[in-house]
Nucleic acid binder design. Structure first.
Lengths: 199, 199
DNA sequence: GATTGATCTGAACGCTGGTTCAGTTAATAT
DNA sequence: ATATTAACTGAACCAGCGTTCAGATCAATC
């Protein structure tokens, strides 16, 4: 035996990425073997090397793709000028994006330390860009007098942590729908930012 | 060579735990070898097995010890009856406890998936007990009319995530002292809980 | 329908992993 | 001083790791 029936790089390539993603998320990068990934795709381990130079690149591509996707999608959003509306918009966007990609969110936080130093720096830089978006949004709201926060930096970290933490427990078939979730978190975020509810 | 000069189980035992903790936190459980741990202690790999049945137990003991410590210390706290004061108390406690143990916090979140199923359940149960403490605290505040939260469960998760996320960026020698940090987060938590600042 | 290139197999490579254990030495008790 | 026990070494075991590659087979092209 050699080449499989119906084999195509446009099919096998994505399948390998998907299998690697699921396994990395479930067991951790270091604990997953190339043979496990291959088995999930229905292929031998050697075949993976037609699609990636090595295991490290498999991880890095997933993380970079995830961050690039996040930044690109936010850049494409039409963000309201009103600070409170912008906050609501961000909360909805962040929750929606992250809830749809729990595995990617997980490994983007977990597996940073398994990256090469230079690969790590690249991801860190992208993460910093996203954090700056939140920080700038808060600063604008503070300057406009809409937000009452004592420290914009701390608040930006707190907001991101609070929102991203949702993927640890939220399930599509759970007590709350994603719509209800968003509503709750918009209210929570407003309160956290000291938005005057009478305004 | 065999037994080392000055060797004592009361010394080597804790050193192994400490070395394992640091290495697990830095590189991840699966990526750390018994030989690395041994080298850090200044001993051969085989010697570790005088102190632990296997690598898994090394991890589990760290996680269980951490959670047990957390629960025991909270149980020993004198918590004010006033809901707002209790919230402040909890925020200060949680931040203080977690900031002092960044490595343990890290692996307690990261390495759950590397636990045996039964070991995992035990840690999960302890974690649930801690989350319930927060939930009950919020419920009391809501019933007393001190907190304005739409969903006590969500708010409890959000608070824990927001506070625990601090270990990702806080440094003792950074911009903020731990005292300032606590003050900021008490204010932030009050705001998140809709505590009437005029009361 | 023959040729060519893309896709995959299967076996192998050198290494390193967790773990075991007989033997050796330091500390302790007698 | 001697005997006993606790602590550790060093070497070995085997399974499994990531990675390579010559060869086999399928898909596509003309």
């Amino acid at each position: 035996m050699a080449r499989k029936i119906g084999s195509h790089s446009e099919i096998t390539g994505p399948k390998i990425k998907q299998a690697a993603l699921e396994l990395f998320a479930r067991h951790g990068f270091a604990a997953v073997t190339m043979r496990q990934i291959a088995a999930r795709v229905g292929v031998q381990a050697g075949a993976i090397y037609n699609y990636t130079p090595d295991k490290q690149a498999l991880l890095f591509d997933l993380l970079r793709g995830h961050m690039a996707d996040l930044l690109a999608r936010w850049a494409a959003e039409q963000v309201p000028h009103n600070p409170v509306a912008a906050l609501d918009h961000f909360v909805a966007f962040h929750l929606d994006f992250h809830i749809q990609r729990p595995d990617l969110v997980f490994i983007s936080y977990m597996e940073l330390r398994n990256l090469t130093e230079e690969n790590f720096k690249e991801i860190e830089e992208m993460r910093g860009r996203y954090e700056k978006i939140v920080y700038d949004m808060i600063r604008k709201g503070v300057l406009a007098g809409d937000f009452q926060v004592t420290d914009a930096k701390i608040t930006s970290f707190a907001l991101i942590a609070m929102l991203t933490g949702v993927v640890d427990w939220f399930r599509e078939d759970g007590r709350l729908s994603s719509t209800e979730l968003t509503l709750h978190y918009c209210a929570l975020a407003r309160q956290t930012f000291g938005v005057n509810s009478l305004a």
